[in-house]
Design a protein around this nucleic acid. Structure first.
Ligand SMILES: [Mn+2]
Ligand SMILES: [Mn+2]
Ligand SMILES: [Mn+2]
Ligand SMILES: [Mn+2]
Lengths: 222, 222
DNA sequence: AAAACAATTTAGATAAGCCTAAAAATATAT
DNA sequence: ATATATTTTTAGGCTTATCTAAATTGTTTT
C-alpha cells in the first residue's frame, strides 16, 4: 500500500513516460507536480527502495512492472469516476478533473469493480481517453488530429489532447463534442486556421492550435 | 480547510458528545480513534487554535458551532455515500462502512449536492441513521429498542445501534431488516431473551443484547 | 487530609513530505 | 578541451501527526 503522494508520483511518471517511452527526468516530474526538484529526488529514492521505479542518480526514473500496474490502476479509477460524474451526476466535462483527482485515491477493489459494472464497462472517459481494464490493459488510439486532415477529408471527434477547462468550454460552445463529424473545407495558409463543416450543419473556422488538440478518427471518403 | 485527520477528530468528538451532550474526554477520543492520549492532547490544542473546539486543560473538548458544522457535514457525506453503495453498487449494509470512511473526506460541494439529488434526497442511510440536510439539520429518532416493548406490543425496525458487521450479518440472516414488523410474544425472565414474530411469518427468539441494539418505531396496538 | 490511583499533559523522538541554499554532475557552447 | 550553463543531488530545516516515558493534575479512598 502506498500514500496519496506516492500514487501521484507514480501517475506522473507514467503519463510523462508514455509520451517518450523512456526514463523521466527529475525536473519534468517536479514541474508536473508543481513541486521542487529536491523533493522529487527524495521521493524517487523512496520509490526505488519500494521497487516501484528503476532509478539511478542523474539518470531519471522509469516505472517497474509493479509501479506501472499501480499507475494504470489509478488512471482507471480516475477515468471511471469521471464517467460517473458526467453521466450520472450532471457534471460538465470541464468540471470533473479536480474531483476525480481526489476520488482516484480511494482504495477498494470491490468499489471500483462495482462502479465499472454500474457504468456498463465504459471504454472511454468523457474526454475520449481510454479506460484501462481490470488487468491493466490500455487501448491507445492513434492520435490523429484535425491538423492531419487535407481539404475534403473528414473525421469524427474521438478525443482531446489538451484538457484545460477553458479549451473544453470553447469546444462545448462551438458544439465540437465527441462524436461530431467534421469535414475540412479550406485551410488558410496565412495562419493555418481551418474552415470546417460539422454534422452537415454549421460551418466554422478553428485555429491551428484548436485543430491540433482535437483527436479524430479519419473517415473514408465517399 | 482541514486535514483528514482533523476531520476525523471532529467527527469523533461529535459522535461521542451526542451520547452525553457535554464535553468529551481525551481518553474517550483516543479510544475511538485508536490512538494515544498524548496525540489527542496535541490535536485538541490545534483544533482549539482553529476555533473548532472549546478546550481547557484537563477539562475535555466540546465542538464550537463551526466545528459542529464540519462534523455534521462529514457525517452527511458518509451516509450519502453509504446509500449510494447499497442502492446502486450492490454493497451489503455490512460492507459499506470502511469505504464510506474514505469517501466522506472528498471535498466538493457540487459533488455531494449532485449525489444527494441523484439518490433522491434520502432521509436515512442503510443502517437507519438520519442523513443531515445541506444546512446541517439532523433528525434524531427517539432510540426506542425492542427491549422497551412489553409482551403483546409491536414495532417496525427503523435502525441499529451497534454497526459491527457480524451483528449486521446476523440480522440479515435472521431477516431482521429495516422495515420489518416485530411483535413481542414472550419475554424469558431467565436471560431476558425475547420471542418475537416477524411480519406475520416466522417466530424466533433473540437475545437481550440483540434486542437492545434494534431500534424500532412503536406501533399502536390493534 | 493524605495517600493512592487514574486521567491528562509535557518532553523529547520519529517518519513523511516539503522547502531553500549549496555542492556535484552532466550537458552545451566556445 | 575548457568554460559556462543546466540539471540533479545533498545538507540542513520545517510542519504534521504520531509515539513512549515522565511529570502533572484531578479524583477516590482511607
Ligand atoms: Mn481528468
Ligand atoms: Mn479525462
Ligand atoms: Mn458507517
Ligand atoms: Mn451508516
Amino acid at each position: 500500500m502506498q500514500s496519496f503522494t506516492e500514487e501521484n508520483y507514480l501517475k506522473a511518471i507514467y503519463t510523462l513516460s508514455t509520451a517518450e517511452n523512456q526514463s523521466v527526468s527529475t525536473n519534468a516530474i517536479a514541474e508536473k507536480l508543481t513541486t521542487k526538484a529536491s523533493s522529487v529526488t527524495d521521493m524517487l529514492k523512496k520509490l526505488a527502495d519500494k521497487k516501484l521505479i528503476h532509478y539511478e542518480k542523474y539518470q531519471g526514473a522509469e516505472l517497474t512492472r509493479k509501479g506501472k500496474k499501480i499507475a494504470i490502476n489509478i488512471i482507471r479509477k480516475h477515468r471511471l469516476w469521471e464517467v460517473f460524474l458526467v453521466n450520472h451526476l450532471n457534471f460538465k466535462w470541464d468540471e470533473v478533473h479536480d474531483v476525480a483527482e481526489e476520488l482516484e485515491h480511494i482504495n477498494s477493489e470491490k468499489l471500483i469493480d462495482s462502479l465499472d459494472r454500474f457504468l456498463n464497462f465504459p471504454q472511454f472517459d468523457p474526454h475520449g481517453d481510454p479506460i484501462p481494464d481490470k488487468e491493466g490493459k490500455v487501448y491507445h488510439h492513434k492520435e490523429i488530429s484535425v491538423k492531419d486532415l487535407r481539404v475534403g477529408e473528414s473525421g469524427i471527434i474521438v478525443g482531446v489532447k489538451e484538457h484545460h477547462p477553458d479549451f473544453l468550454r470553447y469546444l462545448e460552445n462551438a458544439e465540437l463534442l465527441l462524436g461530431t463529424n467534421i469535414k475540412v473545407l479550406k485551410i488558410f495558409e496565412w495562419d493555418n486556421s481551418i474552415k470546417i463543416k460539422c454534422d452537415k450543419k454549421q460551418e466554422l473556422t478553428i485555429s491551428e492550435k484548436v485543430a491540433g488538440n482535437l483527436y479524430i478518427k479519419k473517415m473514408l471518403k465517399k
